[in-house]
Amino acid sequence: MKTHALLASIALAVAVPAFAAGDKHDHAHEHKPLHGGVVVEVKDMDYELVAKPTTIQLFLRDHGKAADVSKASAKVTLLTGTEKQEVELKPAGDKLEATGSFKVGPGTKAVALVTVAGKPATARFTLK
């Protein structure tokens, strides 16, 4: 039985660095915020969330170029302390947007369920 545990440990030790190395990707764009928000990458798409007390905006970039959001939709769940708020975002020019009153600030967590061209994706953010 100890042999199996030892082999499993060795396999895990070898697999983790290989997995981590596979996580790197080479492409010509950077994942920097262009609108003052927080950027995450999901499936080669950059999502930038700009969260202000009166406006929530979500910008999408596909390989560094603005994605067409004219037929996209998103639902963002904001988690601030013990408070939870759900916000529907609609297309507004080059972004998805909602206006209203939002409790956001450093440490607020946001989960965006975004649908573009019928394909759903989930992006998770922590506001700074």
Rank of each mutant, 00 (worst) to 15 (best):
G81K: 14
A51Y: 00
A51E: 04
L60E: 01
Q57L: 05
V76M: 05
V87H: 11
V50P: 06
F59M: 01
S73K: 06
P53K: 05
I56V: 08
T82A: 15
G81T: 11
R61S: 01
K84N: 11
A51N: 08
V40L: 15
T77R: 10
K65W: 00
Y47A: 15
A67L: 02
P91Y: 07
T54P: 11
V87D: 01
D62Q: 06
V42R: 15
V42T: 15
D44V: 13
V40R: 06
G81W: 10
M45N: 14
L79V: 08
D44L: 14
L79N: 11
K84G: 10
A51W: 09
V40S: 15
D62E: 12
V69Y: 00
V50M: 08
E88M: 08
H63P: 05
A74V: 01
L79Y: 07
L60D: 06
V87I: 06
Q85V: 12
K65H: 02
F59E: 00
E41H: 12
A74C: 12
T77Y: 04
G64C: 09
V69A: 04
K75W: 05
T80L: 05
E86G: 13
V40C: 15
T54H: 10
F59Y: 12
Q57C: 04
A66Y: 00
T54Q: 13
I56H: 03
V40E: 08
D46R: 04
K84M: 06
A72Q: 03
D62A: 03
T77E: 05
H63S: 10
Y47R: 09
P91I: 04
L58D: 10
A72F: 00
E88F: 09
D68A: 08
V40K: 15
T82G: 15
V40T: 12
A74N: 07
V50Y: 04
A67I: 09
P91A: 03
K65S: 02
D68F: 01
L78Y: 11
A72P: 02
K84C: 06
L78A: 13
Q57M: 04
D46S: 10
L89I: 02
V76D: 02
E48P: 01
T80V: 03
A66L: 09
T54G: 10
G64N: 08
P53V: 13
T80D: 08
T80G: 04
T54W: 11
K90E: 13
L60P: 01
A72H: 03
D62K: 01
G64L: 02
R61D: 01
L58R: 00
K65G: 06
A51V: 14
T80H: 08
V76F: 05
E88P: 09
D46F: 12
G81N: 09
T55R: 13
Q85H: 07
L58W: 05
L58K: 01
T77N: 07
S70E: 07
E86W: 12
E83M: 14
